[in-house]
Nucleic acid binder design. Structure first.
Lengths: 241, 241
DNA sequence: GCAAAAGTGTTCACATTACACCCATGG
DNA sequence: CCATGGGTGTAATGTGAACACTTTTGC
């Protein structure tokens, strides 16, 4: 037998008929991060496939023909959390042959940052649950790998851009903000240096309000200076006139 | 009419039949970088769709049912350049509804780094051509966007890891190495600091050979200390015993 | 001996880290 | 008045940027 390469229709070649080509299912999976009780958490759902009985999986769904990948992710978030103004970032596409027991499914992974407090109502579905990120070991499919990949990417990202504000209330104390960074990065930060560094960015607006009901000196509450952040981003790319 | 959400079969739900679901074609596109004549180049092919007549496109193909995404990229590289030990990194998946005129195609973009000199033979296909990255304006499909995305990611990556050695000969002078970094990053570097920084990494092995046929004092030739690099990576993750 | 690039160290500015004391509030 | 965390500044250290002169080769 002669060792000849199999010739298949090329997508950019003439005579290519999309409908007669094979099928691979396309899905998205969302790693939805939340922050609660000073712990970083992720929203998971009980998997109902017999192959993964009693295991947890990410929230995902097939991509519909009339929606792009981002839209599919936003749809899932909206359906599951009721939120629609969330931070969303694409991370990686997972395409191993055997990653789904029902057939060939490739899945594009996104992570998003939401405020846990803002969607309590939708949590009625008792198959949904917030899990501390650091306590998750096994998951259905390759979802542990997806979770780890997204978590690492998110850790990287918060070192570059202040996306964490999506996880907390509009008004927050510096202590809360620092707790958040420490929970995400998994390390302790110096309180004074943290404060100094953040003020230098100019991204914090003093609300002139104070914490309430704390058993110690109350801290000031701040808001995120979003417009300044947008300006800074523009300047960084040199488009500000 | 009641505003009720459309219920579609859920991929993880019971009774889901993969075959009866819709079809989205899955492809990969490769941004193949090379370095020649002190210029960063990318390998493109003439697009033969009437919609993009005379425009250039990336090398890509549909993903076959029996191969994963990485394998598809390697296959394309092998087919087009004859190389099979190349650096390859997945970057992003592009899924806009209208990105392909023939139908719904989502495409996962990879970039790879190859040595232009090592595959001259396969370039016989005169539809293939190396283009200086900085001289490309228009491309077929959304390929300019894909190229830009991959280029930015690659620029980021070489600031963190010495993947550039995939682009040059085994033996090289420091000047060549610096030219490469300057071409990729698009800026001038200080010769002395560049030299200092690289020697500190310990990733350069002196071959005790010299450049030849240069009209000035010849520089020393070095090799990349790959085993040391692998060790460093392991140590970084704390797995070295 | 001249042109052209190789090879080499030191200084300076800036950014990051480490660190200690007083203050405001609730109980 | 005491416990708890809020609020502030300074010194030391490390890192990256700037920079000039001598050396070696080809012509």
């Amino acid at each position: 037998m002669i060792n000849q390469p199999i010739v298949k229709p090329h997508i950019y070649g003439p005579g290519f008929d999309m409908d007669n080509y094979f099928k691979i299912a396309v899905s998205v999976d969302c790693v939805i991060f939340g922050f609660d009780d000073n712990v970083l958490k992720v929203l998971l759902i009980k998997c109902n496939l017999p192959e993964f009985e009693n295991q947890w999986s990410l929230l995902g769904d097939l991509v519909r023909p009339e929606e792009d990948l981002d839209s599919a992710s936003y749809r899932i978030l909206k359906e599951r959390t009721g939120l629609d103004d969330v931070y969303l970032e694409q991370v990686h596409t997972f395409g191993s042959l055997d990653r789904h027991p029902k057939g060939r499914v490739i899945s594009t992974a996104f992570y998003s940052l939401v405020n846990i407090r803002h969607h309590q109502l939708k949590l009625s579905d008792n198959e949904l649950h917030w899990h501390p990120v650091n306590e998750i070991s096994e998951m259905a499919f390759d979802h542990k790998l997806i979770l780890d990949t997204c978590y690492e990417r998110m850790q990287q990202k918060i070192r570059e851009e202040p996306i964490v504000f999506n996880l907390i209330e509009k008004k927050f104390s510096l202590r809360e903000l620092q707790n958040l960074y420490e929970a995400i990065l998994g390390l302790k930060l110096d309180r004074r240096n943290f404060r100094k560094k953040f003020f230098l960015t100019g991204l914090l607006l003093d609300t002139h309000e104070l914490e309430k009901d704390v058993p110690h000196r109350p801290g000031r509450l701040y808001r995120f200076n979003k417009s300044k952040y947008i300006k800074l981003k523009k300047n960084y790319f040199g488009i500000d006139f």
